[in-house]
């Protein structure tokens, strides 16, 4: 037990003193996940709304695929991106394997299905309510996509936060395509895995605490936004 207590106090010292090693890892984690989620939102939100509003061949298949991809294991996504980016792969010439860009690409693929599937649900519910009114106003389904994304903004922020939760918590994909290289591609989750294996519990615990706080903040924000939406914009 003394070991654990020591590890905890060391962990909090690392956080309190903004240890440069810890800060670097946290910074890279946030950068990778925020960029990945930002790009995933840019693609996933309109894609989800389009799946809800537009009728085109393959729409059902795409919807099912999207829902299935929501549960895809990160290691599988990591493996796919690895194969694409490896020297012999189709995108090998880019030389992106074991860079933060590769990690962003992997997390992007993980998050797009979540954001798109949730956005589809939100847009579908809103469309059921809005369709007659919008059609009467002269709004074609394609034009309704930005309308529904804006009117569903509170629910959609929750969807994006869920995507960020998945991106920042996963370890398998970034481990495979990033390689967990110190000062280059080491992020919170891969660092925790490594330091735990090496027995350096202080750093692992410190990062764990930060991840948990991050998760709390995200879920708190999602909750508050949901309440705001219900109160202000019925």
């Amino acid at each position: 037990m003394d070991d654990f207590a020591g590890a905890f106090s060391a962990a909090f010292r690392l956080i309190a003193t903004l240890d440069p090693g810890l800060a670097e890892i946290v910074g890279l984690s946030l950068r990778v996940s925020l960029v990945a989620v930002g790009l995933a939102a840019l693609v996933g939100l309109p894609l989800g709304a389009a799946l809800a509003l537009l009728r085109f061949p393959g729409r059902r298949a795409l919807t099912v695929a999207m829902n299935a991809l929501m549960g895809m294991p990160p290691v599988v996504v990591g493996l796919i991106v690895y194969l694409l980016l490896s020297r012999a792969g189709p995108l090998g010439v880019l030389g992106l394997l074991f860079t933060p860009t590769a990690m962003i690409a992997a997390q992007f693929l993980l998050v797009v299905p979540i954001v798109a599937a949730l956005a589809r649900q939100v847009a579908e519910d809103l469309w059921a309510e809005y369709e007659e009114q919008l059609r009467s106003l002269g709004c074609a389904p394609g034009r309704a996509i930005p309308t529904l994304l804006w009117d569903g903004r509170f629910s959609l922020i929750t969807a994006v936060l869920a995507g960020f939760g998945r991106a920042s918590a996963e370890v398998g994909a970034v481990m495979i395509v990033g390689g967990n290289i110190d000062h280059v591609t080491r992020v919170m989750t891969t660092a925790i895995a490594l330091e735990t294996a090496r027995g350096d519990l202080a750093l692992a615990l410190g990062l764990g605490v930060i991840l948990m706080v991050l998760s709390l903040v995200i879920n708190g924000a999602a909750f508050v936004l949901g309440e705001t939406a219900r109160a202000g914009a019925r």
Partner: peptide, 15 residues
Amino acid sequence: RRQALVFQRPVMLRR
């Protein structure tokens, strides 16, 4: 495009 319809229960956009 030169008609409008007011519904029994109007749908207000969230703005």
